[in-house]
């Protein structure tokens, strides 16, 4: 009797589990997995033209991509963009969270102020910064002139354009990440700080030995998001530079858009997409493998 039950129970629960998972599996498959596989297949086919349907070309699309200097320019730009914006956004978010977590007057106003950029659509953010960067009468130049400096074409110069769009991304993201850090900071019981103070720990020691390790799960979460955003958010590049000047602000996704929807080269665009996906997958995996072990989850 009990033998029979034992054999029955696991199967029943497995079936139920799968049934419960089914809706999300269907949705994920329809909108994520199947398109990815379709894209992968497409990347081995030529771009269909009016008089020439797509045909299998093997790795030709990838070979063309590697031979294209603009691809390399976009990839390197994107890596610089990621390497610059991610640490800056995370560090500023943490600093802001630590600051508004302390007992200072008017902190709720400050929290709101820090969070505002997050609520604004990227298009609006780009507009604001377009004004800041406008040569001659933009905010930055007005300040520069006030102090006897000269005007700078921040977005028009190859040397400054990428940095300029990176600043916008950091400005937009830091407030968002701050909210996660702030929530985590408020989860840390205040008596930990008191216990550490009695034991003789300075504020810095407490941060290094207690706060920072306890924030690790949030840091990991924020990092994963920041990495994805660094390869995904291109709205402001459309608005502010259009990838220019001379591809100085061209990044992978923007490049994919141009290849796919301006030049209608589906083969090349799908190959590029696969590269971007592989890159993101590898980065996420690396983060979990590297950080996952060190993270203390409550």
């Amino acid at each position: 009797m009990s033998f029979g039950l034992h054999r029955l129970m696991p199967r029943r629960t497995t079936v139920e589990a799968w049934l419960l998972l089914l809706p999300s599996v269907v949705l994920l498959a329809t909108f994520a997995h199947i398109p990815i596989v379709a894209t992968l297949i497409d990347s081995f086919y030529s771009t269909p033209r009016r008089n020439r349907p797509a045909h299998f070309v093997g790795l030709d699309n990838y070979r063309d991509m590697v031979a294209d200097p603009i691809f390399w320019k976009a990839l390197i730009n994107n890596l610089i963009y990621a390497a610059g914006t991610i640490p800056a956004a995370v560090a500023i978010a943490l600093a802001m969270a630590l600051f508004v977590d302390s007992r200072l007057p008017g902190r709720s106003l400050l929290r709101m102020a820090y969070f505002t950029p997050t609520v604004l659509p990227m298009i609006a953010v780009a507009n604001i910064w377009l004004f800041f960067y406008t040569p001659g009468y933009g905010l930055l130049d007005q300040i520069a002139i006030l102090f006897g400096g000269h005007t700078t074409n921040w977005l028009g110069s190859q040397h400054t354009a990428l940095a300029a769009v990176m600043v916008v991304a950091v400005w937009k993201e830091a407030g968002f990440f701050m909210i996660f850090y702030l929530a985590a900071l408020q989860q840390i019981p205040p008596d930990l700080r008191e216990a550490a103070a009695i034991e003789g720990a300075s504020r810095f020691t407490f941060f290094r030995r207690v706060t920072w390790p306890l924030l690790m799960p949030v840091t990991l979460f924020v990092l994963v998001n920041a990495v994805i955003n660094a390869f995904r958010t291109v709205d402001h590049i459309f608005m502010m530079t259009g990838g220019g000047p001379d591809n100085a602000t061209n990044v992978l996704l923007f490049h994919i858009y141009e290849i796919g929807f301006k030049f209608w080269d589906q083969g090349a665009a799908t190959a590029l997409t696969m590269v971007l996906l592989a890159l993101l997958g590898l980065l996420a995996l690396a983060q979990f493998l590297f950080a996952g072990r060190k993270v203390h989850y409550q």
Binding site: L192, E194, A195, I198, E199, G200, A201, R209, V210, H296
Partner: peptide, 20 residues
Amino acid sequence: LPSKDRRIAMVFQSYALFPH
């Protein structure tokens, strides 16, 4: 004096152990 210079130890009601 700051807590650390008072030559005291303290046990908290919540224990205040560092969870990590």
